[in-house]
């Protein structure tokens, strides 16, 4: 059963990683003058759009999302609405954190917000897909020994990798090299994407090698 889940996870992650690559390559063919540095915001939106669409589709097809208690249309709509609300709130949250880290408040607000959209689509969206709009569950998963399934562990790893990637991405900004990727927010968004891809690879691998030690409490 575990092997099955790990295999499912690996293939899901492969699809997600492929979507990131496609989101980089396809617009380059479609839009003239597209480049990761030059038209950075466009690349950023295309990656977050692709990751959003693919994760929603894949996780819905896989059916990991906790089953709805009621099957009324109204309940489903309210869940959808709450998910959208959470998505937006999470964007605002990331935006605030990035501003606290020292991003200019007004000057490049669009860039900062785009970065927070990317971070949200790489981290929060996955939580929404796996756990649903349920804050209690989120708190449980992200506390110290709170993982209750393979998917929870996987979520922890990818989210941590993405955030650490974005964090590390801020390092080269003060260097005086004058490279295009030092412009705000290129290095951070690249860092986050690379971190995310690393997380996609690392999570199934880590779970595979630690499957003997992993024991989950009540499911």
């Amino acid at each position: 059963m575990w092997d099955h889940e790990i295999r499912a996870m690996a293939s899901t992650h492969a699809i997600l990683a492929a979507s990131v690559f496609m989101a980089t390559v396809l617009p380059a063919a479609a839009v003239p003058g597209f480049s990761v540095y030059g038209t950075h915001l466009l690349w950023l939106y295309s990656v977050s759009g692709a990751v959003t669409a693919v994760s929603v589709a894949v996780f819905w097809l896989l059916g990991i999302t906790p089953p709805a208690k009621k099957h009324t249309v109204g309940y489903k709509l309210s869940r959808l609405f709450r998910s959208c609300l959470y998505f937006f709130l999470s964007c605002l949250f990331f935006h605030t954190v990035v501003v606290l880290y020292g991003a200019p408040l007004i000057e490049s607000a669009l860039e900062t917000f785009s970065l927070s959209v990317l971070l949200t689509s790489l981290t929060t969206l996955r939580c929404l897909c796996v756990l649903g709009p349920n804050v209690q569950a989120w708190i449980r998963v992200f506390s110290r020994h709170g993982a209750m399934s393979v998917w929870d562990t996987c979520l922890q790893i990818t989210v941590a990798c993405t955030l650490v990637g974005a964090w590390v991405g801020a390092f080269p900004i003060p260097l005086d090299w004058d490279r295009p990727w030092q412009a705000w927010p290129v290095s951070c968004s690249l860092g986050a994407t690379i971190g995310f891809l690393t997380g996609l690879v690392a999570a199934p691998a880590w779970i595979h090698f630690h499957r003997k030690q992993l024991t989950y409490k009540c499911k």
């Binding site: 880290y101 020292g102 801020a170 900004i173 003060p174 260097l175 005086d176 090299w177």
Partner: peptide, 14 residues
């Protein structure tokens, strides 16, 4: 790195 010495405040704020 000399830039990090010049911009050491950034490191500490971060």
């Amino acid at each position: 790195a000399s830039s990090f010495v010049e911009e050491e405040h950034q490191t500490w704020y971060f």
